[in-house]
């Protein structure tokens, strides 16, 4: 069963200036006993989140409040500086929009490579199914992605990323980029993913989107949890949040 549990997690993000990347500079600094401690910024400050299967959590907050960093921390990109972090289940982080995409490759090859990166075997049937979801013409499969418009590219990437049920899905500013008609379809697909016992965490500035999609919204400020709002949804949601504590 998928679950996420963060207890008093902190992350000190080291700020490397131009000089901190220089070994020579550092060695000289050692020799002349320069007192230049590494500057760090506390990007995540004492955050406690517990989520069980079925939870859909929205992360809101101004730029630089730590939304993306928190998602990366959960994904295992950054090791926490202190606190306890336990993730059970297969995490699929979809944070950047173009991660792993090679624009010179044809769409088909890109899909195959992205599937391989997520540990799936790209068979013809799987690729065709993904392509059907994008509603793009079949012959475009053979075109390099460079020729796609940004909206079309998004469709391909979203369709690929959500092709398989994930235990835990992490999304960063994802849905707002797609055009209106596709966004509805994408949301349906997300709903479908969630109904298959998954946790979804979405970071976004788009409050209406978060209210529509999530069962609870965590407002972040300077890496701390400022408030947690439980979203009341009139139509009975097909999932429930067991426990979310801040």
């Amino acid at each position: 069963m998928a679950s996420i549990s963060l207890r008093n997690v902190c992350l000190d993000y080291p700020l490397y200036g131009a000089y901190d990347f220089s070994l020579k500079r550092r060695l000289i600094g050692h020799l002349i006993r320069e007192k230049g401690g590494m500057r760090v910024i506390r990007a995540i400050d004492n955050v406690t989140i517990t989520a069980e299967a079925g939870a859909r959590i929205g992360l809101a907050g101004p730029n630089g409040s730590g939304k993306s960093t928190l998602l990366r921390l959960i994904a295992g990109v950054y090791p926490p500086s202190s606190g306890h972090l336990s993730i059970r289940g297969n995490v699929v982080p979809l944070l950047g929009l173009n991660a792993g995409v090679n624009l010179d490759f044809v769409a088909e090859d890109n899909i195959a490579l992205l599937l391989r990166i997520s540990g799936r075997k790209p068979t013809r049937a799987v690729i065709d199914e993904i392509w059907a979801f994008t509603e793009l013409e079949a012959r475009m499969q053979r075109l390099p992605l460079r020729m796609f418009s940004s909206g079309m590219l998004m469709r391909v990437l979203f369709a690929t990323a959500t092709a398989f049920p994930a235990d835990i899905l992490l999304l960063d500013e994802w849905l707002s980029v797609v055009d209106e008609r596709f966004a509805e379809k994408a949301e349906r697909r997300l709903q479908n993913l969630v109904s298959q016992a998954a946790i979804v965490i979405i970071a976004s500035h788009d409050q209406p989107l978060l209210r529509r999609t999530c069962t609870s919204i965590i407002n972040l400020d300077h890496g701390r949890i400022a408030s947690t709002v439980t979203v009341e949804q009139p139509s009975a949601p097909p999932f429930e949040v067991r426990e979310i504590s801040a």
């Binding site: 982080p93 950047g96 990166i117």
Partner: peptide
């Protein structure tokens, strides 16, 4: 960088 930071490889 993008695969490491965004796909957590």
């Amino acid at each position: 960088a993008s695969l490491i930071r965004d796909r957590a490889l």
